[in-house]
């Protein structure tokens, strides 16, 4: 728990409650059990990373957290309320950013979609759009269409739209999976500094073990067929994290080894 307190100042009473809670969640899809008996508590402000072999159910778990799927048995709750449908204060960043943006709207228009829907008066929107695009490092691209932007820029734009929802929780499904290593590391740091400011709870799915350790307060590993929790590690690395020193930290290397062994065992 110290790791959470390190990242941001959250009253200790808040830490007692969980924001996203899975309790004995099982999900069947197409006659197959995809997720089996998963129980998981995510505290407000916590940065939880989910790792696991391909096809183990990471995306499915995230969609359950988003309310896009309903469990076959057990339940998912958010701030103590059952999650029966997607909520506006839970934003989801999809891996396939190209499909999650409106290609006929400019960058500004895509952010505006969220602002329109939360009912922000028209007069206030331009300032907010500027602020959000600046936050994700796209201040000079407001008039560009997604087709005119690189993959990294499109993913930033999707994150800006999600932030426009003013989410209490941000769910990210391999958001940087399709990007090159340099872009990826840059975005990792940007996400960390953005979320430090917003105090949002994060569930971050990745198959990159180092990315999970670098970003997270905690890493949960799923076992495949059906998806179950196989490992749950707190990450006690100091913040702010740094691409060089954090990755050279002996604790980082130890955690990487532990997760690597876990993945290897889970695939066997």
């Amino acid at each position: 728990m110290t790791s959470i307190a390190l990242r941001k100042d959250i009253p200790s009473a808040e830490l007692e409650k969980s924001q996203i809670a899975f309790s004995h969640v099982t999900l069947d899809l197409g006659g197959k059990t995809i997720i089996e008996n998963v129980s998981l508590d995510v505290k407000p402000g916590e940065f939880l990373c989910i790792i696991g072999a391909s096809g183990c159910g990471k995306t499915t778990a995230l969609r359950l957290a988003a309310g896009l799927y309903q469990p076959t048995s057990g339940h998912v709750s958010f701030d103590g309320e059952p999650m029966r449908a997607p909520r506006r204060d839970v934003a989801i960043v999809f891996q396939d950013y190209g499909k999650a943006l409106l290609p006929w709207r400019t960058a500004a228009g895509n952010v505006a979609l969220a602002l329109e829907t939360i009912g922000m008066p028209k007069a206030q929107r331009p300032a907010r759009i500027d602020e959000l695009l600046k936050k994700v490092g796209l201040p000079n691209h407001a008039a560009k269409y997604p087709a005119e932007m690189s993959g990294g820029m499109q993913q930033r734009l999707q994150i800006a739209r999600c932030l426009a929802q003013e989410p209490k929780a941000l769910l990210m499904d391999e958001p940087f999976g399709a990007l090159d290593a340099m872009t990826r590391q840059g975005l990792q740091d940007e996400v960390l500094s953005l979320l430090d400011a917003s105090k949002a709870t994060v569930i971050f799915v990745t198959h990159d073990l180092e990315e999970a350790i670098y970003l997270g307060d905690r890493v949960v590993g799923l076992l495949p067929h059906p998806g179950r929790i196989g490992i749950d590690l707190p990450i006690n690395l100091p913040r702010p994290r740094d691409q060089l020193t954090t990755r050279e930290n002996p604790e980082f290397l130890r955690l990487r080894r532990e997760l690597f062994d876990f993945i290897k065992a889970s695939e066997a």
């Binding site: 988003a66 896009l68 997607p86 909520r87 839970v90 934003a91 999650a100 829907t117 929802q165």
Partner: peptide
Amino acid sequence: VEPRLYEVARSLHMSRLA
């Protein structure tokens, strides 16, 4: 229509008309 966009709409609670 890209199904992903409908999911974005659900997550934003967009009205049917919107």
